[in-house]
Amino acid sequence: MSKIHVTTTINGDESEFLCTPGETLLDALRNRLGLTGSKEGCGSGDCGACTVVMDGQMVCSCLVLAAEAQGTTIDTVEGVAEGSELHPVQQKFLERGALQCGFCTPGFIVASKALLDHNPDPSETEIRYWLAGNLCRCTGYDKIVRAVQDAAAELRQERTPA
């Protein structure tokens, strides 16, 4: 099978890979680029564990063809922290105990950051509906929602000059 050559920007760095025509972006990230932070919980767009941001849009990378990544900018969980500095969403997940097994966590981190990038002061209901595409079986969502609320508050404080 002939392979497709893809050039894309991932977490700020230019990357190239070869993929098959039917390959998903999730598989390319995980198997070709070693970015195993994005998880496959379902492969059908129903669990959100594979969530990445592609050209500013939150997508399930299991539903995107790897070849479609040509020329795009992709942000994965591996790029959420700035160097060794955790993003407030990550920090608040830790402080709130918002992960148990942690398998859903990368998807929630990416989705929550995307929410706060776009809505700095979401209500509880907005958080719950925004995250409704991400399944977590361990936590019952309570601590996740609270972590996102905490992160939103912290980000707002950071943005407001004292």
Partner: peptide, 13 residues
Amino acid sequence: GVEKVTGKAIYGP
């Protein structure tokens, strides 16, 4: 915690 919120932790798959 940190390895799990940054996507570094290695799970079964």
